[in-house]
Write a protein that binds this DNA or RNA. Sequence first.
DNA 1: GAGTGGTCTAGACCACGCA
DNA 2: GCGTGGTCTAGACCACTCT
Lengths: 245, 245
Amino acid sequence: MTLASRLPDRPGFRPLYQQVRELLLARIASGVWRPAEALPSEQTLASELGVSHGTVRKALDSLAADNLVERRQGKGTYVVEHTQESAHFRFFKIAYPGGERAMPSCRKATISERLAKPGERQRLGLDADARVFQIKRDRFIDGAVAVREVIVISADLFRGLDKRQPLPNTLYTLYQAEFGVSIVSASEQIESVRAGRDDAEALGIEAGAPLLEINRTAYDITGRAIELRQSRFASGKLVYSVELR
Amino acid sequence: MTLASRLPDRPGFRPLYQQVRELLLARIASGVWRPAEALPSEQTLASELGVSHGTVRKALDSLAADNLVERRQGKGTYVVEHTQESAHFRFFKIAYPGGERAMPSCRKATISERLAKPGERQRLGLDADARVFQIKRDRFIDGAVAVREVIVISADLFRGLDKRQPLPNTLYTLYQAEFGVSIVSASEQIESVRAGRDDAEALGIEAGAPLLEINRTAYDITGRAIELRQSRFASGKLVYSVELR
DNA sequence: GAGTGGTCTAGACCACGCA
DNA sequence: GCGTGGTCTAGACCACTCT
């Protein structure tokens, strides 16, 4: 088997269940099991890897805690799949002041391809002459533009995406289904800015009004930065809502 | 023992380890073990409760995952204590644009007592004639006012707090040490507002400039709302920074 | 009924902190 | 060296899902 001896040989000792976790994670990341597919049963994995039921279980529990697999009693353990709802619930923190999550629709998006700017190259870990797709779109709530987004992704990683109009409401389902890229975490920085002429006109507010601006970096299963996204919206009807634990 | 039979008797079956968890949680909440104190060892708890080592362990792991206890290998399991650093790291999401967490100091605070407003009563679950303390304070970074806070708490729950000047930088250590109230989670809603005359003057910016306004509700170990806190700061030097998983 | 994940047990041994 | 939490095992039985 590919696991280190179960006899702890310090230094460099790592628990067996962590080794199992990483082995399974690598298989998921490399596409051995695709999103929505079932992994082998705990018993099968245990005997294949030569470890006990409990050890495999602990590894799978840890992957489930990180939202990488999903367990269904009586059925099996599945690689997580991004649905419209799950991606929205996990990463979209814009809500009505009462607390209810907003659910915007999306009509038109414009995609352009260009050289990556230095800051984008740095944040996305791209080469000097790398190209990116830039997606601009307005998202609607109750028939009016509510959120304006600018999204930047590697053109190399998402080759052909610019020919796939119309785009789905939640891009992460597309990234996963068509390009094998699963977004599993993100970092957001929020600031307060004045609306420019363009934003003000699109959002139906006066120029100079305060806007919330969210700058997100989204990461895949391996921790690689995949997407930069800037979202802007007017406070009042909507707020950014988050739980701290 | 106080636990339900370990023989599952559906309906109403609840796993043993959850029952153990709730029993331990109730003891912590009622002060049987105080913050920073050690719980009995896993082995002791197991024999006292008449369950196995593994079951107690699963209950303690779950409490540790919720930041209610802290495990230290070789030493024991401790009720979490809010230190300046831990409370700050968990609940203070204001950072420099680079990502480094800001660490403001606090000079003067003013405390007043008054009747709770209807919205406050509702959010804090208070009676009709309940009174609250309102704390206003400015927090400093690099010698200048950076964040303005208005905090509202039940005067009944924190009786005598108004006579305890000066207040510590992180109030949650005071709530816990002097009033037995442990803040374990919070909900924040962020919006973008224009600076009023007063805020503009205090923050050294022009009136009407965009500010980030954070409205927090903080909860204790039993899920009861304890504190309302509004924080305002100017974007530019500082951002609100959060990780999504 | 067969197969899956979920719970629970009992016991062995390891890593860590401290006296 | 002792007591603590951390890992790992083997096996039993329960709960859920599908056929």
